[in-house]
Amino acid sequence: MTQLEERLAERNLRVLKIEVINGAHAGRIYRIETVDKENQMVNLVYKEFETERNNELDFYSKYSKIIKQFNKVVTVWDSAPKAILMDDLKSPLKNDFKILSDLEKQNLIKRILDRLAVLHSLSVSENADGLPIHQITSEWHGWCVDQMNRLGAQNHWTKTEWIKIINNAYEQLDLINFKQQCPRVITHGDPHLENIFLKDGQIWFIDWEWAALGSPLRDITILCQDLYDTRLIQFVKESYQDVLNNHNLNIPSEDYQRDFNYFYIDHTTMMLAWEIEKYFQQYTSEEEVKEIIEFKIGEIQRVTNEELGLFR
């Protein structure tokens, strides 16, 4: 009997089938079919963490009150190999998002925004004392420039102005010295559409590795990274302030706009670097990465110009 089977047996679960979930994950993930002691089928996902990437497990251990209403985690193992067991939520929203109509996309986004607002409305003092504090640093900028240079050394189709546009954004807006304008709230830290699921009529989030205290716009601008339509991005930006108001989080428009723009540029830069990494790892085709880079570079330039025009 393997260690995984032993761990499941401790929960009175017998393994029928184990399937590896492939992808650019920080760990090993398996989809498991089991039966319980009443011979009822139970579908689960088991994730073993890499040694240097177990912040998510610490979060589950320390902040179970937060996670309980947003994630279907069943068990946490803090002994080696560190791992979690959760209900199988099936396919992430990203898988089918592209084929939805514009109205269906907007309706789904509204549901996600409302769920995030519930998280952002939680009392920090009562629920998340001890969480790290998120702020913009030079990390994503440096990584993205390195990735761009690496890409340029291997491909003739790269453009020199891409790095210039990124550098200009960080320099002109003094991004790494930005202090958030919005109240500090509990944030998921990585709520892109691959980490969001819809099951049993409810929105669920996985992968809380980057959970921290920060601006609510931190999560919203990461959500936007899977949207390749400026109209939808604007829809998210405009809609979330109304959603926050409905949850009694009233933020002045200027503060809201500034946080959105700064965090959006930083997170778009981060995602650019990650998308290039997925290309290097052959998860993304050359044609796809070209389209992604062109769109995100255009967004960095657009929002930089918007910020300079609005506040200077």
Rank of each mutant, 00 (worst) to 15 (best):
D146V: 10
M148C: 10
P92G: 10
Y46K: 00
T75I: 02
Q154D: 13
V73R: 05
W140M: 06
A128K: 10
P81F: 14
L113G: 06
K47D: 08
T137K: 12
N55A: 15
C144D: 05
L116I: 09
G152S: 14
N127S: 10
K98V: 14
L119N: 04
L113E: 00
R115P: 05
E48Q: 08
I133M: 10
E48I: 15
L113W: 00
C144P: 08
S64C: 03
S79A: 12
V42R: 13
N127T: 05
I66L: 02
D58K: 05
S91V: 12
S121R: 12
V42M: 11
E52T: 15
E50G: 13
N43C: 09
G152D: 10
S121I: 02
L44A: 00
D88F: 11
A83Y: 04
R115E: 06
R111A: 13
H134Y: 15
F49D: 05
E56Y: 11
N95M: 14
S121F: 06
K94C: 02
R111F: 00
D102S: 15
V42C: 11
S123L: 05
V45E: 05
T137L: 06
M86H: 08
L119E: 01
D129R: 14
L108R: 14
M86D: 06
T75H: 06
K98G: 13
D78L: 02
K94S: 15
I67E: 05
H120D: 00
L119R: 00
M148I: 15
N55F: 05
A83G: 00
G130E: 00
E56N: 03
F59Y: 09
N149E: 14
S101H: 12
S123V: 07
G152V: 01
T75D: 00
T75S: 04
P132E: 07
D87L: 13
C144S: 11
L44V: 08
S64L: 03
Y46W: 15
R111Y: 04
Q69E: 15
F97H: 03
L122W: 05
E56S: 01
M41E: 09
K47F: 13
Q147H: 03
L57Y: 09
D129F: 13
D58W: 08
D102G: 09
S64V: 08
N95I: 12
I99V: 13
Y60N: 06
I84R: 01
V45L: 03
E48K: 11
E50D: 14
K82V: 01
Y46I: 01
G130T: 08
L44W: 10
E50C: 13
V145F: 01
L151Q: 04
K65A: 13
P81V: 09
R150V: 07
I99Q: 11
R111L: 13
D129W: 07
S101E: 07
G142H: 12
L113D: 02
I112V: 11
L85S: 07
E139F: 15
W143S: 08
S91T: 12
S61I: 07
F70A: 04
V74E: 06
V76T: 13
K94T: 09
H141G: 02
R150D: 14
E48S: 03
V124Y: 02
G152R: 12
I109Q: 01
M148L: 15
V45Q: 03
S125P: 01
